[in-house]
Design a protein around this nucleic acid. Sequence first.
DNA 1: GTTCTAGAAC
DNA 2: GTTCTAGAAC
Length: 356
Amino acid sequence: MPFCLLLSEDDSHKPIRLPHLQTVILGRGPETKIKDHKCSREQVELRADHNEGYVRVKQLGVNPTSVDFVALGKGNQVKMRIGQKLHMVNQLYPYTVSFKEEVSADGNKGSKRPHQENSEEESPTQRPGTYKVPKSASTEKARDQCGRADGASGLHRQPSPSQPLKKELSIIDKKVNSGHWNQGLKVSMQDPSMQVYKDERVVVIQDKYPKARHHWLVLPWESISSLKALQAEHRDLLVHMQNVGNKMVQQCPDASRLHFRLGYHAIPSMSHVHLHVISQDFDSPCLKNKKHWNSFTTDYFIESQDVIEMLERTGNVSVKEGMAELLKLPLRCHVCHKEQSTIPKLKEHLKCHLPT
DNA sequence: GTTCTAGAAC
DNA sequence: GTTCTAGAAC
């Protein structure tokens, strides 16, 4: 059974044991003997994976924690391996990690001790050896309109066990994982190659996984996390977003043949307010499951106009309860309202409503 | 948000 | 046996 230690490089205290898949929070305190007030009491969260041979390092404090001198930023995390150096805060208080085989009392390496098994340890939840690469090739193959799929979300690379110490991968980790997947829109909207329109207030990008032949997202430059954060002063911005969305439709060569809707998801997965502009063909390989379908065809999809009117009426935007349950409703055609038993059958059915 | 896969449904 | 979904992991 391997075990993992966090070693103080300047030997200021004893090694700290990092149990398998358990989070350990460290910072200023007796355990590290750090007294520097730039270091939070809860500066980092560490989680060692003994099977994969890395420690996930997440910065919790305000001041920078770094791995190999690259600052993480609050809330961000990277995987740290043997040979890499962690600085707890401000490039100070250096640490390394070590993974070693524990030698049991009978001298056998790796033998399980009784009553020490736990299900998580014995059945690693992470598949070993998966090294995900951006799926641009397959996505583009599936549909040209899918556009670029360059890793703004859902593309967390993992190292291959055959190359566990390759430093390049750690550097990629830092770049690609610098933020949770739900922050992906903030990355995409800043990427000029994703932008299809921009002005001083908003930017439009193609949805990376379009659920129809035409699917854009209109995002304000202003950082607004969700509908809940909207205030009366945002009314004109929302109107502008809707106008830009309508412009996107007008310039679309299919505008005369396809119907479009403009609206917001009641409970979006991605952070940063975004207006969906989506054609109603739902003809896309990226539309794969009940959640996808119901998020655009039930009241989970809130019309842009309704959001604006609510903001004008009440000064804020509230989302009704029970929205999440709408995602589990049976699959029903949005045109003829006929129920379909499975996604493949629904997709086959939708063909009959496509323009000829 | 997507991917992956166990196991339910057929 | 295969297809499909739901839930976990990221």
